[in-house]
């Protein structure tokens, strides 16, 4: 996840664009492996099912007998549009970045249409029109090897890529998923982040049980009522529990080993997670007293990262009884 500049919406909540990304790596069974390998080599495979019908893309199991499908046949690269819809405002990652159509297209030799994109002027598209595959410039064994469909013509097809026998079949594919959001903080969280921008740690008190939550939440998790009384918390607290991070991971900002700990700020009823630095990892212990270390003021924003870390202070350890209910 990446986060960029923050701003404020009408109700005063902080919000920022955020992109959630993941490359799904999928292994393929025998049916889809053959289908995707075929696409790479400019051939379309369909399944011959128990009821005699031929369908593309081939399902892995027969919808009537539920037996694995194993009869695959090569079908045409031209077909007929069964129905379509115009995409006047394409969104990210769709097959074409200018207006186009999605269509259900039934390939010659098959009995069922499947969904793909159709690149043709809107006024020329009709159900029943003949279309043909436009192959992607480079084919690698996924459904987007078919770049889209286009109106059929009698021109010689695109050259078939040379198949290297040593290349083997396609056994997996990678599907990147990228979703963009405008992520908003709740009103309470927004107050907390604005407090940080002024060097304060703000919590809120539940009107019912009097517990102080930091960061503040939309509702007291004990009583289910809004926590509306604002409380500024001390910048000192007690380590309730911790772990020593020894394992490197993607995006890690500090060189291991280092300590992640729950710190119970004085006056708070819930501990929050932060780093303990400025001392050897092996000296960190439960009950240790620590204080917040802030970054230089000119680096502050509405973020928890304004607090660089917590460091030990010269105070006797807190008594176990003072924090045992927070473990």
């Amino acid at each position: 996840m990446t986060q960029t500049t923050e701003s404020t919406n009408d109700s005063g909540c902080l919000h920022a664009p955020i992109q959630v990304e993941f490359d799904y790596t999928r292994s393929l069974g025998s049916v889809l492996s053959k289908f995707m390998t075929g696409l790479r080599d400019h051939q379309v495979y369909a399944a011959k099912l128990s009821d005699g019908s031929v369908v593309c893309p081939p399902p892995e199991y027969d919808p009537t007998t539920f037996e694995p499908v194993n009869d695959l046949v090569v079908v045409g690269t031209q077909g007929v549009v069964k129905t379509w819809a115009w995409v006047s405002e394409p969104v990210t990652d769709q097959p074409l970045n200018r207006p186009f159509a999605y269509a259900m297209i039934q390939l010659d030799g098959t009995d069922e249409p499947f969904l793909h994109a159709l690149d043709a002027p809107q006024d020329q598209i009709k159900s029943g029109m003949r279309v043909q595959i436009r192959w992607a410039q480079q084919t690698q064994g996924d459904i987007r090897d078919i770049a889209c469909f286009e109106p059929a013509d009698d021109s010689p097809g695109q050259p078939v890529p040379a198949t290297d026998a040593a290349q083997g079949g396609v056994t997996g594919l990678i599907s990147p998923v990228r979703l963009a959001y405008d992520y908003a903080a709740s009103p309470e969280e927004s107050k907390f982040f604005r407090g940080l921008a002024e060097g304060k740690i703000l919590g809120q008190r539940c009107p019912k049980c009097q517990k102080v939550y930091v960061p503040p939440r939309g509702a007291c998790p004990v009583d289910g009522v809004p926590t509306d009384e604002e409380v500024e918390l001390a910048q000192r607290g007690t380590v309730t529990t911790f772990c020593i991070v020894n394992v490197p991971f993607l995006g890690q900002k500090i060189k291991p080993p280092y300590v992640s700990a729950y710190v119970l700020l004085d006056g708070a009823d819930i501990a929050f997670l932060h780093l303990i630095l400025d001392c050897p990892a092996e000296e960190v212990r439960m009950g240790m007293r620590v204080e917040a270390v802030w970054k230089p003021r000119d680096e502050w924003g509405t973020t928890i990262e304004n607090i660089s870390h917590f460091r030990p202070i010269d105070e006797p350890d807190a008594d176990y009884d003072t924090y045992k209910q927070h473990l």
């Binding site: 109700s11 909540c13 908003a184 903080a185 709740s186 009103p187 939440r217 939309g218 509702a219 289910g224």
Partner: peptide, 12 residues
């Protein structure tokens, strides 16, 4: 909604 997508402030 302009608040958080957990919608807690509307569920309460």
């Amino acid at each position: 909604f302009q608040g958080s997508p957990t919608c807690v402030e509307h569920l309460v």
